[in-house]
Design a protein around this nucleic acid. Structure first.
Lengths: 223, 223
DNA sequence: AATCAGAATTAAGACATTTTTAAGACTTTC
DNA sequence: GAAAGTCTTAAAAATGTCTTAATTCTGATT
């Protein structure tokens, strides 16, 4: 689950960028001024920063400078055509890359990928089903951009179901995989866990069904 | 002394590039075909590769592919205007960056610097997370402007957590990284250390949580 | 519609893990 | 070798999670 700070004052563009990122599996956060960006940045870590240069509050250059005082996070600058001369200076100032507006969405995404791939080298191991994302490294679960607060067992059950979303898992299957132990027939422990997972999902998506009951057999993810 | 492999079939352009690089303190080496590039590359390591896409012998894509099989060396591709559509594919294929010919020399140099800085420039002597700064040379820790008086183990634990602030470290992880020793199951040494680190942080920031417990799994830094 | 077995829900107690504290063992430093 | 600081161990307290059991709900069958 990669978080990206989007620093851009024009609300439409900012929202468009955030939507684009969200749609592609990132978790965007919007900042509308240089000062806001610095504030957010000091409180939280991001995996990448998209930085428009023409922003109120502080210039993009100043923001970049402040970021570079404490962090090596990849920064991709967004520049207007007219500022084209300053791009070399921008790179020297610590930006990792830049794109000139108007830019191609695919190219933006490709460059983001390059820098995320490069930045930590480690591709976070995640598994996705519809809106649910499990981050196996952070042991965190998300639905859309909201974090699901799952316990260890709940996480493991969901993980198992998501590994083969079309397969129906019997309680036996689930018990033996998650508990690593033999299943003792009459036991509704799993029912309770499934119920709790559903309740937590329903907290964010009250109408959607994610885990489907297959009567007399077990559970599976629902398409 | 940074060595750069210049893969470009047109002799004039190749020489020009090599001269430019030499003049700016790099050690260039020329390859005039894809096959030659692969051959040179397999024999020695470079700090960066400049790769023209239209070359005889093997296409630039093929060369890139071969390089990526064994190495993560930064590759900057050089493309003609007409190939512009393929740039996204290029980035996805593993190129780190590209420039469209004719390009500006200063921009080329700036981008080379970015990638060299990024690749090896891990000379950070401090690491920061929110208000905490670790000086890795002096072994000193600060929160804001106050010095945290951490013991060696405490410092190392915090350092490890801060290297990947989003990752959850199991006790196993922590034990093996910090102690360099195998983890002996039932042992709450780490709990005690975490507790003490928290207490010291709380001495200055009583309300803020910096280290988060992930039940049944381990610890991570909290946003 | 009535029945029945499987499934869902709830709450409470059992269980497990983590936190904290304190004491003694160990290390380092002078 | 004594003193100061650090690490580990142990035990009790606090907290979070899991299981049990009782009850309600649902879908299948007659």
């Amino acid at each position: 689950m990669k978080t990206i700070l989007v620093v851009e004052d024009e609300e439409n563009i900012n929202r468009m960028l955030c939507d684009l990122l969200k749609y592609n599996g990132y978790v965007p956060e919007a900042a509308y001024s240089g000062t806001e960006a610095v504030m957010l940045f000091s409180g939280k870590t991001y995996d990448l920063i998209l930085l428009d240069l023409m922003i109120p509050g502080k210039t993009g250059f100043e923001v970049l400078e402040e970021i570079r005082m404490t962090s090596t996070v990849p920064v991709i600058a967004l520049t207007a055509v007219s500022e084209k001369e300053s791009t070399v200076a921008l790179l020297k100032a610590g930006a990792n890359d830049y794109l000139t507006k108007p830019f191609d969405n695919d190219e933006l995404l490709a460059r983001i990928e390059v820098w995320l791939r490069n930045g930590t080298g480690k591709t976070t191991r995640t598994i996705t089903f519809r809106e649910i994302v499990l981050d196996l490294e952070q042991y965190e679960a998300f639905i859309g951009t909201d974090a699901l607060q799952l316990s260890k067992r709940e996480f493991e059950i969901l993980h198992l179901l998501m590994q083969n979303p079309k397969k129906v898992y019997t309680k036996n299957n689930l018990y033996e995989s998650v508990w690593g132990d033999e299943f003792m027939g009459d036991d509704n422990t799993i029912n309770v866990h499934i119920s709790k997972i559903r309740a937590k999902i329903a907290g964010f998506r009250p109408k959607d069904e994610y885990i489907q009951t297959v009567w007399g057999i077990g559970y599976k993810m629902s398409e």
